[in-house]
């Protein structure tokens, strides 16, 4: 394995996008076989597979940028937590169905506008992957937004569970659209997405759905950050322990 301390800005940026889909996909896949009803079990598993497919395309690109022996598999299964660049929101535990739906709703709302903007990237590879992924993400956003409305505007219990989930996950929303120096640099180069530009779009969409769901938007919340730079919560370690087990126990194992 190469040392990961020397990521180029481009590579760092591609890994951020790839790892969001990879870790989010893994989290959603944890519902496989545990969905509340068969129909939602399949729906969630489909979404997890979509996300995994997206992360593969980004990781293949990242591996090419790194050169050498690196592959999509080595990047997914042999990096340690500090070398991951996903935002903190996607590593939050599934909790109950409300937590999973709110996490998806916040992520999908961001992911949709982010990927739509990425269509304008001067990096043809990123643009192509964005184009391929956008239809899937459009469906993900519709799915999680509809569940947010149904459960927020459902029974007293479903509403309370949704509001709890919103209150708990809201502090992880800020990192998604808060640009750090790398985000700004890549946006300026025309490669990356201008997060300041999509922030109001994401906010408006989230606000609309929250209104229809009858959910209250938490005010003046401290926003956690760090995942994008590699500072993660303890949850990522547990995710990797499960996700990477096979490659760690049986190095080089193939399907």
């Amino acid at each position: 394995m190469q040392s990961y301390t020397k990521y180029s800005p481009e590579l760092e940026y591609v890994l951020r996008i790839a790892d969001n889909s990879l870790i989010m996909g893994h989290r959603v896949s944890e519902w496989c076989g545990h969905g509340p009803v068969l129909e939602q079990d399949i729906a969630l598993t489909n979404i997890a597979l979509d996300l995994l497919g997206q992360s593969r395309m980004y990781l293949q690109y990242a591996a090419e940028l790194m050169g050498g022996e690196e592959t999509e598999d080595s990047l997914a299964f042999l990096r340690d937590a500090m070398q991951f660049r996903n935002c903190l929101l996607v590593e939050r535990p599934n909790g109950d169905f409300a937590h999973t739906m709110v996490r998806s709703f916040l992520f999908d709302s961001f992911h949709y506008f982010f990927t739509k903007e990425l269509l304008n990237s001067s990096d043809k590879r990123l643009k192509d992957i964005a184009e391929k992924s956008l239809k899937e993400i459009t469906y993900h956003r519709k799915f999680s937004a509809e569940w947010t409305i149904r459960l927020g505007d459902g029974t007293e219990e479903s509403h309370n569970r949704m509001q709890n989930a919103v209150d708990e996950l809201w502090p992880y929303k800020g990192e998604l659209t808060h640009p750090d120096s790398l985000d700004k640099k890549m946006a300026k180069k025309g490669v990356g997405v201008d997060l300041k530009k999509i922030e109001p779009m994401v906010g408006e969409f989230v606000g609309q759905i929250m209104d229809r769901a009858g959910l209250k938007t938490p005010q003046d919340v401290y926003m956690h950050r760090g995942g994008k730079e590699g500072t993660h919560s303890e949850h990522l370690g547990f995710i990797l322990a499960e996700m990477q087990f096979m490659q760690r126990a049986y190095p080089g194992q193939k399907w």
Partner: peptide
């Protein structure tokens, strides 16, 4: 056949169960 709370959800579930 499948279970769903209403027609909209039935279409979405059908999409996931029968057209993947």
């Amino acid at each position: 056949s499948l279970h769903a709370a209403d027609a909209d959800m039935a279409i979405e579930n059908a999409r996931d169960v029968y057209t993947r």
